[in-house]
Amino acid sequence: MSRESEMGNRESSNGGSTDGWVPGAKPATATSGIAQNPVFEHLLRLADDRLVLGHRLSEWCGHAPILEEDIALANIALDLIGQASMLLKLAGEVEGKGRSEDALAYFRDAIEFRNAQLVELPNGDFAVTIVRQFLFDAWDVLVLERLAAVSNEALAGIAAKALKEARYHLRHTAEWVRMLGDGTAESHARAQRALDDLWPYTAELFLADAVDAEAVAAGSGVDVESFRSRWRQTVEQVLGEATLAIPKDGFAPRGGRTGRHTEYLGRMLADMQSLARAHPGAAW
């Protein structure tokens, strides 16, 4: 489907007034679609985690501390962006308004993104990137294991493919957490600081609302609340081996799932979306 017809469809569906990609235009409301299409919303949550984290990782390309890790991070980034692409394509089909995966990735504004705040935070130093990725990967494997068994065959197929990738991601980042935590005094201090800073953001990964419950009931979703203790087991084991102390649970930021994000997402999207918005429909 061409970009023009997508835009045409969006305009007609929005009465021609709220085209998200026009500079200065009013974005769709944060809650639009939640009641009408919970499966679409749930798929956006799954896809946006991967799209945003994949882009964050891609920012390391050419900057990682060593060539081999530069390639490894780029590989993980590509895996995540590939998963996001498949999930957004499926979301667009479920929505039924003719939006392709590209339209959803590049022509939504921050308030329309449904990722958890954890993944949009800046990369920080290498320890922050690795600890964040490890905390996510341990969660992601559990998410995908469950999604691979849902009755929605298209979603289960995507999850089964992604699961193989995610298991490797976890193996890679768990090894790095061990090396950093149980490494030099400096690497240990940086890894512990990263863990302390990121820990509060992991709570949001396990928050579910009515949207998620409806998607689960429709055979197209995952109940994230159901495996919090399993995640904690995995994380505790690796952090123990890494001689890192698990922070106490306390204040936990939330809101990403309904479009409330940190200041960092908007800037990241401005960068990520600039090419597609400057040259709509460009192909290469």
Binding site: I66, E68, A72, R171, H172, E175, M179
Partner: peptide, 20 residues
């Protein structure tokens, strides 16, 4: 060849650089 600190690390770097 790859640089790495442990056998597991070497295996992962080899996978990422040569086997993907």
């Amino acid at each position: 060849s790859v640089h790495a600190t442990t056998p597991e690390h070497a295996m992962q770097n080899a996978r990422d650089v040569y086997a993907r």
